[in-house]
Simulated scan of single mutants.
Amino acid sequence: MRWWSVPIVLALGWFVFTLTPFWALYDLARAVQAHDADYVERHVNLRTLRLSVIRQIAVAAQSRGETPGAEPRDRQRLADALVALAIPIAESLVTPQTVVDLLDDGRLDSVDPAPLELRPGEAAVTAPPEAAPKPGLRIENLRRLVPFYLASEMRGFRAVVIPVPPDATRERRLRLRLRLRGWTWRLVDIELPEELRERIAQKVAGTGRGR
């Protein structure tokens, strides 16, 4: 083998390796469309996913209820209280069936679908229906993996972050993180879009007021 072929072989090997998580993504998309909760349970790390959702809910709820000029000790107490409230909500939201529900259309039917309450000074922004990308994890054929691949971010050798749908704005898309464990890529984290985090934060705030 000539010396100049070594970097070519290495580059080709890396390229092939970067394709492997997308086979897992394709299988996951097929399971979602088939509403196969058993497949999701086997290929999703629900424990790490729940921890991530707890963190996201607590941060969103804290930002909604944060009081300017509050003492650091009060802020910490608020954060601890919000985490305590978020734990049971995350337990109920993050199940194999609700993961299917979320990946199917980017929404959770168990979360109140009513419009968000806007903060003072905020204005509602509605995108034209024809301009909005199709929500959810939908991969009709292998060719449809190309936009996902181009929009993805490799995080070293064992993790990749994939936006869903890949052509949506950051505020309106999920961000899936897959991690390689052994020879299998597993879904370990879903970064929720801002709108959904706000809806769940409202639910947490409502739970807190009801106590």
Results as ranks from 00 to 15, higher is better:
residue 14 W to Q: 14
residue 15 F to V: 09
residue 16 V to S: 09
residue 17 F to L: 12
residue 18 T to V: 07
residue 19 L to H: 07
residue 20 T to I: 02
residue 22 F to R: 02
residue 23 W to S: 13
residue 24 A to G: 09
residue 24 A to P: 00
residue 25 L to Y: 02
residue 25 L to H: 03
residue 25 L to G: 03
residue 27 D to R: 14
residue 28 L to N: 04
residue 28 L to M: 15
residue 29 A to S: 15
residue 31 A to V: 06
residue 31 A to I: 01
residue 32 V to C: 12
residue 32 V to N: 10
residue 34 A to L: 13
residue 34 A to T: 09
residue 35 H to I: 06
residue 36 D to V: 04
residue 36 D to M: 09
residue 38 D to F: 10
residue 38 D to L: 13
residue 38 D to M: 08
residue 38 D to S: 14
residue 38 D to P: 00
residue 41 E to F: 05
residue 43 H to K: 08
residue 43 H to A: 02
residue 44 V to H: 00
residue 44 V to P: 00
residue 44 V to I: 08
residue 45 N to F: 04
residue 45 N to I: 04
residue 46 L to Y: 00
residue 46 L to M: 14
residue 46 L to I: 09
residue 46 L to K: 00
residue 47 R to K: 10
residue 47 R to W: 08
residue 48 T to F: 06
residue 49 L to V: 05
residue 49 L to F: 04
residue 50 R to A: 01
residue 51 L to N: 13
residue 51 L to K: 11
residue 52 S to H: 14
residue 52 S to E: 12
residue 55 R to I: 01
residue 55 R to G: 11
residue 55 R to P: 00
residue 56 Q to V: 03
residue 56 Q to R: 02
residue 57 I to A: 05
residue 59 V to I: 15
residue 59 V to G: 07
residue 60 A to H: 00
residue 60 A to E: 06
residue 61 A to P: 12
residue 62 Q to P: 00
residue 63 S to H: 11
residue 63 S to N: 13
residue 64 R to S: 10
residue 64 R to Y: 08
residue 64 R to L: 14
residue 67 T to M: 14
residue 67 T to Q: 15
residue 68 P to H: 09
residue 68 P to K: 04
residue 69 G to T: 10
residue 70 A to P: 06
residue 70 A to T: 13
residue 70 A to C: 10
residue 70 A to W: 11
residue 71 E to K: 14
residue 71 E to C: 09
residue 72 P to Y: 05
residue 72 P to C: 08
residue 72 P to T: 04
residue 72 P to N: 07
residue 73 R to S: 15
residue 74 D to M: 11
residue 74 D to G: 03
residue 75 R to I: 08
residue 76 Q to G: 07
residue 77 R to M: 14
residue 78 L to A: 14
residue 79 A to E: 11
residue 80 D to R: 13
residue 81 A to G: 15
residue 83 V to Q: 09
residue 85 L to G: 10
residue 86 A to E: 03
residue 86 A to M: 07
residue 86 A to W: 01
residue 87 I to W: 05
residue 87 I to R: 11
residue 88 P to V: 03
residue 88 P to N: 02
residue 89 I to K: 07
residue 89 I to N: 00
residue 90 A to W: 00
residue 90 A to T: 03
residue 90 A to C: 07
residue 91 E to G: 12
residue 93 L to D: 00
residue 94 V to N: 01
residue 94 V to Q: 01
residue 94 V to K: 02
residue 95 T to C: 09
residue 95 T to S: 14
residue 96 P to K: 02
residue 96 P to Q: 06
residue 96 P to S: 05
residue 97 Q to H: 15
residue 97 Q to E: 15
residue 98 T to I: 04
residue 98 T to V: 06
residue 98 T to F: 10
residue 98 T to Y: 10
residue 99 V to P: 03
residue 100 V to R: 02
residue 101 D to Y: 03
residue 102 L to S: 08
residue 102 L to W: 08
residue 104 D to M: 08
residue 104 D to C: 06
residue 104 D to K: 09
residue 104 D to W: 07
residue 105 D to C: 08
residue 105 D to M: 03
